[in-house]
Amino acid sequence: MDELIVNLKKEIIEVLNLEEVKPEDIADDAPLFGEGLGLDSIDALELIVLMEKNYGIKLTDPSQGRELFKSTRVMADYIRENRKK
């Protein structure tokens, strides 16, 4: 069990108000956008805030998010390498 991925899923559910989604409903490699969770552009911007607030990672270009928010595993890998918090 990857603790960072589990925490990340909890954080995503909380900041995006995914009331009826549980961490175990999100597969580590499942795409966050495009299907399933029904996320939109505002959610992507909110995830950029999450990266900075919780992990000290500042993304200046919103288009970076497209690569980064592919899945919780991609996010977690990026956080491990770049976190400042």
Partner: peptide
Amino acid sequence: YFPSPSLFV
């Protein structure tokens, strides 16, 4: 200071 887009909208 972390302005929230989902609150702002």
